[in-house]
C-alpha cells in the first residue's frame, strides 16, 4: 500500500470514515504518521470546544467569585477550589462513573402534558462526556486566572469611569472586561496549552474508545504496544503536539497584540 493509499483510507479513521480495520502487521512510518495525525482531530475538537465554551463559563465564574452577594460568591469559590485542587485524571473517572450511573437510575421528565425520557447514554461517550469534563476543568482554572486579573484592574481606571458618569454596565464592558482580558491573557495562553495537552488523557484514562476511534495518544500507544518500539510513535505524536502548541502560541499572540494595541510598546 502506498503512502497515498494509506492517507485516503486512514486520514479520517478516528472519526469512523475509511478503512475499518487498523493495520495489524508491517507498520510503516506512513501508517503511524497518518493514523496518529488522524487521532489529532479529536484532540483539536476537544481543545477548541472546551476552550470556547469554557471561556464564557469562566467569565461568569470569575464575576461570581468577585461578587459581593454570597449566593454567587460561595458556589463559584467552591467550584474553583474543587476543580483546581483535584487531578483532572480523577475528575475524568468520577464524571465517567457518574454518567454511567445516570442511565441506570432512569430519567423521566414530566412536563405535565408530555413525558420525555431523556436519553443519557451519550453522556458516557467520549465526544460529550469527556468534553463536559474538560469544559468544567478549563472553566475552573480560567476563572481563577480571570478573577486574579479582575482584582488587579487599576482602581483609578474605574474611578475615572465613574467620574465621567458611566453606568455599571458600561464600566464593565468598556473598562473592566477588556482590562481583565489584557492582564489575564499571558496566563490564559498557558492554560490553553495545558488544556490542549490534557486532551491526550481522554481515551487513555476512562472514556473507552468506541470501535477503535481514539485520539492521537490512543493510536500512538497502539503502535508502541504492537511494535514494542516506543522510539517511533511517541516522537511522532510529540512532533504533532509541538506543532499545535506553536500554533496556539501564535494565535494567542495575535490576540495579545490586539488587546495591547493601545499600550506603548516596551522599548
Amino acid at each position: 500500500m502506498s503512502c497515498f493509499d494509506t492517507f485516503t483510507s486512514y486520514a479520517l479513521r478516528s472519526i469512523g470514515i475509511g478503512e475499518r480495520l487498523l493495520p495489524k502487521t508491517d507498520f510503516t512510518l506512513c501508517d503511524q504518521v497518518v493514523l496518529i495525525g488522524s487521532g489529532m482531530i479529536w484532540n483539536v475538537y476537544f481543545a477548541v470546544l472546551a476552550l470556547t465554551l469554557g471561556f464564557f463559563f469562566a467569565v461568569s465564574l470569575a464575576l461570581g467569585r468577585s461578587s459581593e452577594n454570597p449566593v454567587f460568591r460561595i458556589p463559584a469559590r467552591a467550584f474553583i477550589f474543587v476543580i483546581r485542587g483535584s487531578p483532572l485524571f480523577i475528575q475524568f473517572f468520577l464524571i465517567y462513573e457518574a454518567f454511567v450511573l445516570i442511565p441506570k437510575m432512569g430519567w423521566d421528565i414530566n412536563l405535565g402534558f408530555i413525558e420525555i425520557t431523556v436519553e443519557t447514554k451519550w453522556l458516557t461517550k467520549a465526544w460529550l462526556g469527556a468534553l463536559i469534563t474538560l469544559f468544567l476543568n478549563t472553566a475552573g482554572y480560567t476563572a481563577n486566572i480571570f478573577y486574579g486579573a479582575l482584582r488587579s484592574i487599576p482602581k483609578g481606571d474605574i474611578e475615572a469611569a465613574l467620574a465621567i458618569g458611566m453606568s455599571k454596565r458600561q464600566i464593565f464592558w468598556r473598562i473592566s472586561f477588556p482590562t481583565m482580558l489584557r492582564l489575564a491573557w499571558p496566563s490564559y495562553t498557558n492554560e490553553a496549552i495545558f488544556l490542549f495537552h490534557a486532551t491526550a488523557l481522554v481515551f487513555f484514562s476512562s472514556f473507552p474508545a468506541w470501535r477503535q476511534k481514539g485520539d492521537s495518544l490512543y493510536y500512538a500507544s497502539y503502535f508502541a504496544d504492537k511494535t514494542f518500539n516506543p522510539f517511533v510513535p511517541y516522537p511522532i505524536i510529540a512532533l504533532y503536539f509541538i506543532c499545535f502548541t506553536l500554533l496556539i502560541i501564535t494565535l494567542f499572540g495575535y490576540v495579545n497584540k490586539r488587546l495591547n494595541r493601545h499600550i506603548a510598546p516596551n522599548t
Binding site: 495537552h197 491526550a200 487513555f204 495518544l217 500512538a220 510529540a238 503536539f241 509541538i242
Partner: peptide
C-alpha cells in the same frame, strides 16, 4: 510543547 503523559508513557 509535549504533554507530560507522553513522557510518562
Amino acid at each position: 510543547g509535549v504533554p507530560d503523559i507522553i513522557f510518562f508513557l
